[in-house]
Amino acid sequence: YQDQEQRILKFLEELGEGKATTAHDLSGKLGTPKKEINRVLYSLAKKGKLQKEAGTPPLWKIAVS
């Protein structure tokens, strides 16, 4: 689980600052079920590491501290 968090954070960091992506996109790029990706995304957002942008589907990006 920790491993997934690292992979997602790394992927988003590599996208570049301010760039956002969807759970669907992450799921495809990382070869992980979207349900699992979503769980990790919401967990990271709760920890303040990610920012969720409203929309359908929601967009995710690295939180700027």
Rank of each mutant, 00 (worst) to 15 (best):
Y1G: 10
Y1H: 06
Y1P: 05
Y1M: 14
Q2H: 05
Q2G: 06
Q2M: 11
Q2R: 12
D3E: 13
Q4C: 11
Q4H: 13
Q6H: 08
I8A: 03
L9S: 02
K10E: 07
K10N: 11
K10G: 11
F11C: 14
F11Q: 10
L12T: 02
L12N: 00
L12G: 01
E14C: 08
E14V: 09
E14P: 02
L15Q: 07
L15T: 06
L15R: 09
G16K: 04
G16D: 06
G16S: 04
G16H: 03
E17K: 07
E17G: 13
E17M: 07
G18S: 09
K19T: 13
K19P: 03
K19H: 11
K19Q: 13
A20D: 04
A20P: 10
T21A: 12
T22A: 02
A23M: 03
A23I: 04
H24N: 07
L26Y: 00
G28L: 15
L30G: 01
L30I: 09
L30R: 00
L30D: 01
T32Q: 13
K34W: 08
K35L: 05
E36V: 15
E36F: 15
I37S: 01
N38Q: 12
N38C: 02
N38L: 03
R39E: 08
V40T: 11
V40M: 15
L41H: 00
Y42T: 11
S43H: 10
L44V: 00
L44W: 01
L44T: 01
L44C: 03
A45K: 15
K46P: 01
K46A: 12
K46W: 05
K47S: 11
K49I: 15
K49G: 03
L50N: 00
L50Y: 00
L50R: 00
L50K: 00
Q51F: 12
Q51T: 15
Q51D: 10
K52W: 05
K52H: 07
E53R: 05
E53K: 15
E53C: 10
E53F: 10
E53V: 09
A54S: 14
A54W: 06
A54P: 11
G55W: 02
T56Q: 14
T56W: 05
P57H: 03
P57G: 02
P58E: 08
P58D: 08
P58H: 04
L59A: 10
L59K: 14
L59W: 05
W60D: 02
W60R: 01
W60V: 01
K61R: 15
K61I: 00
K61H: 07
I62A: 08
A63F: 04
A63V: 09
S65A: 13
S65N: 08
S65T: 13
S65L: 07
